[in-house]
Nucleic acid binder design. Structure first.
Length: 397
DNA sequence: TGTCTCTGAATTGCTGTCTA
DNA sequence: TAGACAGCAATTCAGAGACA
């Protein structure tokens, strides 16, 4: 992918994909004109991308202007692309690089809403972090939904989401009311047996179908239904929910519906040569981050080993087994607040250890911001460590 | 979209126990 | 006896879900 050179290009061009590869940068004529006009009128034409990013973000904040949103979307193309690429390499996925790229950009408004220029951060770096969490969340949820049986999905579903899904299918209000009633009866009567995975809830047996049907017929003003019809209705609900919550991805450069030639982005054009420059920079940055991660692992593992057995057990129960403080308190026969205090004290020790290391090695000054970041890193690390101890141990070797 | 409710987690102020 | 630590009860905070 060739780097965009000028401010004009950066705020008015978009990536075009061919299969799963970048084909070229293409300019949006409207954005191109708008940016040209801004640059010609502004004494800030030579200012950095950062300046214009903050400018368009301010416009978006004050006017909620779609034009500002489009300029920022163009600006964040690279951030979205590299995050999507990293995620496909790290996690692998049934979704392509292009799909992940689009998932990230679909929720771009979230970045505009939560970005705070006062904190002195760079919008592009901030967007990369948020894109990463958006994609991870999407992949996790899709995996959950893919693994769910219809009956598990119906259990997880909220009434609001089911209603939206049924409306999305174009059903009339009367039909929707009947489907909702069927779902409510199912929810009320069919509870999965304890200990069973919440993803693998099996189909109700014949007796249960009979009971659900009986309650449904008591509450419905329509002609009484047979259990197999009710079952089909609930299967339709599950199908509608899957289709609504996780629709098939459609590429922005896919052919226009009903047209053999031309795509959504065909009105745009700008030929670019391919370059490896950005890939090399990204690989170097990744290498540095990897080394830092390994060092952090070492520091935290050495600190953890110094904890007594009970403290280690507490952390294992909280982060490893995912127990609540109340559950841990019951098992250890102590009070919830004692658990809370001990966890807080252990976290404080680890934060100070990591802070000391950051101060000595990376020459960070330990202000509130840095400590907050260390706290976030620590939380993530503890979850990974206690879920996959082999992973963190391997990185330390 | 805003409000309400619920739940888990964290905090606060006071008190008791233990130890150097 | 001071300081560290823990117990207790009440309160606050934050996030998620339901609902009008």
């Amino acid at each position: 992918m060739q780097k965009r050179g000028s401010v004009l290009e950066i705020f008015s061009t978009f990536l075009q994909f061919e299969s799963d590869w970048i084909s070229r940068w293409i300019a949006d004529p409207k954005l191109h004109r708008s940016m040209q006009q801004c640059l010609s009128q502004s004494s800030q034409s030579q200012e950095s991308n950062h300046f214009w990013a903050l400018y368009w973000h301010k416009v978006w904040q004050t006017q909620k202007s779609p034009l500002a949103s489009a300029h920022l979307c163009a600006y964040l193309q690279e951030a979205s692309y590299w995050t999507a690429k990293k995620m496909t390499m790290t996690f692998g996925s049934s979704l392509s690089l292009m799909d992940l790229f689009q998932i990230a950009l679909l929720k771009i408004d979230k970045i505009f809403q939560t970005f705070n220029p006062q904190q002195g951060t760079n919008l592009e770096q901030y967007a990369s972090l948020v894109f990463r969490s958006i994609i991870k969340d999407e992949l996790r949820q899709r995996r959950e939904i893919d693994l769910c049986t219809n009956w598990a999905l119906l259990h997880k579903l909220s009434q609001k989401k089911l209603l939206e899904a049924l409306q999305f299918q174009g059903l009339n209000p009367e039909a929707i009311a009947e489907y909702l009633l069927a779902w409510k009866c199912f929810q009320a009567l069919y509870a999965p047996s304890q200990g069973r995975s919440t993803r693998k809830i099996p189909e109700p047996d014949a007796t249960m179908w009979g009971q659900i049907c009986q309650v449904y017929n008591q509450q419905s003003f329509k002609k009484p239904l047979e259990p197999d019809i009710l079952k089909k209705r609930l299967e339709t609900c599950a199908k509608a929910a899957r289709a609504y919550l996780y629709p098939q991805m459609l590429s922005v450069d896919a052919p226009k519906p009903g047209q053999e030639e031309g795509s959504f982005l065909d009105s745009l054009s700008l030929d670019l040569q391919h370059s490896l420059e950005s890939e090399i920079i990204a690989q170097e940055e990744e290498e540095i981050r990897k080394q830092e991660r390994e060092q952090i692992n070492g520091v935290l593992l050495r600190a953890l080993i110094k904890f007594d057995v009970q403290s280690q057990r507490l952390l294992q129960m909280y982060y490893g087994q995912g127990l609540t403080q109340q559950e841990i308190a019951q098992q250890l026969e102590i009070k919830q607040y004692t658990v809370s205090r001990r966890l807080a004290s252990q976290r404080k020790t680890l934060i100070l250890t990591l802070g000391q290391w950051a101060q000595n090695t990376l020459h960070y000054s330990l202000d509130a911001d840095v400590l907050n970041k260390i706290n976030t890193i620590l939380e993530e690390w503890l979850k990974v460590h206690y879920h996959h101890p082999d992973l963190s141990a391997r990185e330390v070797e």
